[in-house]
């Protein structure tokens, strides 16, 4: 009696077709690795941008405050809007308010840097990017002869 060979289609294939399967697996693994690598790159780039923006915000607030101090020093206590270019596109203003303490020819003022999107004047502490308490000395016949910064508080 003739022994019948098993059907090739039903038999185990051994390594037949393994090359293609291995290549597909390799492709999938490669795609995953590249995705992770690009994720690292994307995160790194975003972190750089976020750091730059945060740094710009800090220095914009500082620049606005310095300019406001110089302006109020020779003028009166009023809101100040920077006319120079800032690091970030966010527009800022500096609000000025008195502390109520007036000693001779000294002006005790509080200056707050605020985004212009905040409409409340003076700027609430919760919205203030930078707050400084400054004393201006108007003695000796010179308005703003000297300046003393009592406190400098970042948000």
């Amino acid at each position: 009696m003739k022994r019948r060979r098993p059907d090739r289609r039903a038999a185990p294939h051994g390594e037949e077709g393994a090359a293609l399967e291995l290549a597909l697996l390799f492709m999938i693994a490669t795609a995953l690795i590249v995705t992770v690598l690009l994720g690292f790159t994307s995160t790194s780039s975003r972190a750089t941008v976020v750091t730059r923006t945060a740094r710009g915000t800090d220095y914009d607030a500082d620049a606005a405050m310095q300019a406001a101090i110089a302006t109020v020093r020779v003028g009166s206590c009023a809101s100040f809007t920077p006319s120079f270019t800032l690091n970030n596109p966010t527009a800022l203003r500096v609000d000025c308010s008195t502390t109520g303490a007036v000693v001779g020819s000294q002006r005790h003022l509080v200056l707050s840097v605020c985004p212009t999107t905040v409409v409340t004047v003076p700027c609430p502490d919760a919205s203030s990017l930078l707050r400084a308490e400054v004393v201006f000395f108007d003695d000796g016949g010179i308005v703003g002869r000297a300046v003393s910064v009592l406190s400098w508080s970042n948000q």
Partner: peptide, 27 residues
């Protein structure tokens, strides 16, 4: 199959090397 696999794996290796190069330069 071997030819297709070679092409696929070659493409994958090129993509991998390019991606790593981009990562390093970006870093």
């Amino acid at each position: 199959e071997v030819l297709i696999a070679t092409v696929l794996m070659g493409s994958a290796i090129i993509v991998l090397v390019t991606g790593m190069s981009t990562l390093f330069s970006s870093s």
